[in-house]
Design a protein around this nucleic acid. Structure first.
Lengths: 207, 207
DNA sequence: TATTTGTATTTTGTATACAAAATACATTTT
DNA sequence: AAAATGTATTTTGTATACAAAATACAAATA
């Protein structure tokens, strides 16, 4: 009966999906045995996944009460954007300082397919946007920064608002950030990256 | 035999201490049953603690191989300082924007006992410094920021270098940061907070 | 002697059993 | 009817058992 291949990863992935796609609703209690049975594993590997998710802020543990799917309020989402502003700003700065042409190329590639296009496909652009912000961090080679950033990343998806602003508006901002990095202007790169996040963050307030 | 009172917390605290005070050395493998026996608990609550510590970056899990006390290299420590620079800078900015007099008071209190003193006691000052940087984050009321910052905090202690610079030098910088927050100057507050970290970070390089 | 192979031991990953706490729900009391 | 109480059920936290992987180490081979 024992399957061996580390249930860890698959269980973690599955539970995460269930939360992100709403199969497990916000605030809902996660009854361990129920979910464990559903996934065909015991409570032990499920618990491991749940603890990882707790640290990713997707799940909340109340001692002796159980694990609950975390619900994220407006305030918290706003706060997350503040963190992103600080971290992505720093990432842009680091990249501009390093003058890594390889990195610049990869950043540019995210938006290659949109230049000179009249009608931008929202889904394609959403993925490009996600990729851009993700690799902006990764390309710095700063492991702690990458790990830390993971939190904010998650939440964007949880709230599932998709893009807050129109592609035409943000595409230009992305290009500006990449430009400053390419020119090796740390001050400017950070400034643009922060403004980019801030513009979305402000939008959250008037909503 | 069963004790009930959530072994979670005590086990977590104890293992963390063992890592921080060197009882468990960097790179050392944590043999679960050995440590569990030592603490008088089973592997289950120990595992929970270990997973929490993994997410705090103190422990590293290699599947099917075990948990190891993480060893931190120069590069990583440097990278952590970069993160601190971004996060503490943002925290200072937020506080300066909020104009929270209560917060300013608490920050000032950290260093009250050192003003006009000739010979600053290193141990007392070390604690004050730790407290200052910790509450600088907490006072923002930005929960994700607080959670995220926890990482960096840990590492400072792990490396156990204590203070990198002389109290006389850093005290002045602390005062400047608090001053800018008090005057409600976000730009300046962030600038000073970042310079403060940066000065220490640069010192790491020439070491 | 250095390298490989095979076997015994250790240790992890998972499942499961069970006590104590939490919850649900019916019954009694106000 | 609303509140309080008591009992049954569920669910968590912990300990433990066991298979499979990893490791250690001895013997065999080149």
């Amino acid at each position: 009966m024992i399957e061996y291949q580390n249930l860890n990863e698959p269980v973690y992935i599955k539970v995460k999906q269930m939360i992100l796609n709403g199969e497990l609703k916000q605030g809902e209690k996660i009854v361990q045995e129920k979910i464990a049975d559903l996934l065909g594993v015991s409570r032990t590997p499920l618990m491991r996944a749940l603890l990882a998710l707790e640290n990713e802020y997707l799940v909340e543990s109340i001692p002796r009460r159980g694990m609950f799917v975390r619900s994220i309020g407006e305030k918290e989402l706003f706060d997350i954007y503040v963190c992103r502003e600080a971290l992505e700003g720093m990432a842009a700065r680091l990249l501009a300082t390093s003058k890594d042409t390889e990195a610049v190329l990869k950043l540019k590639q995210c938006f290659d397919s949109f230049t000179g296009v009249d009608e931008i496909d929202i889904d394609t652009y959403t993925r490009a946007d996600e990729r851009f912000h993700s690799i902006l961090i990764k390309l710095t080679g700063n492991t702690p920064l990458d790990k830390i950033y993971f939190f904010g990343n998650i939440h964007d998806k949880v709230i599932k608002r998709g893009l807050l602003r129109k592609p035409e508006e943000t595409l230009e901002e992305h290009i500006k950030i990449i430009g400053a990095i390419e020119k090796g202007e740390p001050e400017l790169a950070e400034k643009y990256a922060r403004e980019h996040i801030k513009n979305s963050r402000i939008l959250l307030l008037n909503q």
